[in-house]
């Protein structure tokens, strides 16, 4: 089948998509955007989190065909004009990145959190990121990164 989808601001048409493919497969294997990660492919780990229109979703749980005519924003589309988003900067600086496989999903989820709540409490951060597994960091530096990103965005 053919899928028409706007990805990171660019209108794209993809042909020969098998109906069983997920949005994650479409992005990673057919559109050259492997930033969204394939850690569980069953919606448990959050590493494939992308915006579908304006809502963060697990791309592995969205059929490719469901993206028809919609807007997708992935981790590759967060930096604007060659400048990292403050969330991305904060993850690097705070030590929230180790192996980094969870990072794209956490960065997108954090981006969405701060967009709707510019000053989240620790409890709010934990609740918002509860669907994103990280095996390396024990989450302490991720909390640091989210707090730092919120401060940066508030003063930007």
């Amino acid at each position: 089948m053919r899928v028409n989808v706007t990805v990171n601001g660019s209108a794209e048409t993809v042909d020969d998509v098998w109906e069983g493919e997920s949005l994650l497969y479409l992005l990673r294997e057919r559109m050259g955007l492997p930033g969204s990660k394939n850690a569980c492919e069953q919606g448990e780990c959050g590493s494939c989190t992308v915006y579908l229109d304006d809502v963060p979703v697990c791309a592995c749980l969205v059929a490719a065909g469901q993206a028809e005519g919609r807007r997708v924003r992935t981790v590759e589309g967060l930096a604007e004009g060659g400048r990292l988003d403050p969330v991305q900067e904060a993850f690097v600086e705070a030590g929230a990145v180790q192996c980094g496989f969870c990072t794209p999903g956490l960065v997108v989820q954090t981006h969405a959190l701060i967009a709707r709540d510019p000053d989240p409490s620790d409890a709010d951060i934990r609740e918002a990121l509860a669907g994103n597994l990280c095996r390396c960091t024990g989450y302490e530096k991720i909390l640091d990164a989210v707090r730092l990103a919120a401060r940066r965005k508030a003063t930007a």
Partner: peptide
């Protein structure tokens, strides 16, 4: 010191090539 990771920027932008990303 605690300099930032040399692979950090690639990892937060999705450009770092993991084994499952190869094509």
């Amino acid at each position: 010191d605690s300099p930032v990771r040399p692979d950090g920027t690639l990892k937060v932008t999705g450009e770092f090539a993991y084994a499952s990303d190869l094509w």
